[in-house]
Design a binder for these strands. Sequence first.
DNA 1: GCCATAGCCTAACGAACGTTCGACCGGTGG
DNA 2: CCACCGGTCGAACGTTCGTTAGGCTATGGC
Lengths: 194, 194
Amino acid sequence: MSISRRDEIVIAATELFAQHGYHGVGMRAIADAVGIRGSSLYHHFPSKTELLYAIAHDYNRAFIESQLADLSPNPTYAARVRKLVYDHIIYFHKHRLEEAVGLRELQELRANAPEHYTDIQTSRRSYQDGLERLIVDGRETGEFECEDPHLVVLAVLGMVNSVNDWYRDRGRMSIVEVAEAYADITVNRILGAR
Amino acid sequence: MSISRRDEIVIAATELFAQHGYHGVGMRAIADAVGIRGSSLYHHFPSKTELLYAIAHDYNRAFIESQLADLSPNPTYAARVRKLVYDHIIYFHKHRLEEAVGLRELQELRANAPEHYTDIQTSRRSYQDGLERLIVDGRETGEFECEDPHLVVLAVLGMVNSVNDWYRDRGRMSIVEVAEAYADITVNRILGAR
DNA sequence: GCCATAGCCTAACGAACGTTCGACCGGTGG
DNA sequence: CCACCGGTCGAACGTTCGTTAGGCTATGGC
């Protein structure tokens, strides 16, 4: 069971878009990367915009599916947040190219395919709300201690999403160590878990 | 004393690049924004790449100048880090368009003008090192308590640099309030200041 | 064996790209 | 009054852009 040509195209386009930006890559360059001609791409995608959407959407859906795994087996809110942050960093590292494209070209999608933009934005938002809920609930039980849960969520997400800007596989830490350290900072420090 | 045409061009190009990306904006579109024809731009900049560099460079130099202000009047390391984080957020908010372009198109510069890329990267690096030094020193005096200063610097910078991704001027908090809250989180929580 | 279809091809479309060229125009210094 | 010059212009350059049209070929169901 090998990957389909369509998937080959998505993978190649993701890499090129991540490197040169959406407008910096032509259809012919994408086609070259998979060994076909530019016009042949239109057998798999109706337009360049839809190809971009396929990248953002495939990636986003996979993330939601993987990340909305049930956190309730974890006994405490601290353990739940810890697992969420940890998994988030591991997942975003594995899919860092898709993420880079998805974030960077979001407004491109907004301008050219508003309905695709809103559905991606909606699922992002629900993820953010889920984390905020965890923090609010954990605060009510006295497990966490922080002033402004909404702001804290934004700070934490900004922190974890920035890992891919500097992390390199051959550095002094493995991605697992980084994920553990960030989860520690989030739960023990920022959330002031007891 | 009005702004020069050159500056007009830089300002217009910054806004357009921030919105559509470097490759998403043509020379004619930039010219339109300042009310001249595309060919006239070449009296002010020799190429589109040099125009991009002017944006990244002007912005970067202004930031270094403003941010390397002497922090030593502040009595404690905690106060110094607090002021640095606070000023950083205020400055990056005021110059959020230039920052967005500078970050997003860095690899464009790397590919087309490597010497310009390295000089920007160098000053970024010295800023990061300066913050790390503050934290290391503050830890030695017992003011801070954290495990890995290098990692903490990356986490803090990721956090503060992400403010512009979500902050909007008409939201529930002013940028000053956000800067204060982030400075609090950094110093009191992440650095564990006593 | 026949036909449909999937997948790729070459060729071309009009538009936009970054850039160059030579001319013009208004002001300034001699 | 004339020569200069910074700044702008229209026109054009060769290239690349996203996209379309039509034709070839191999595969698989009937």
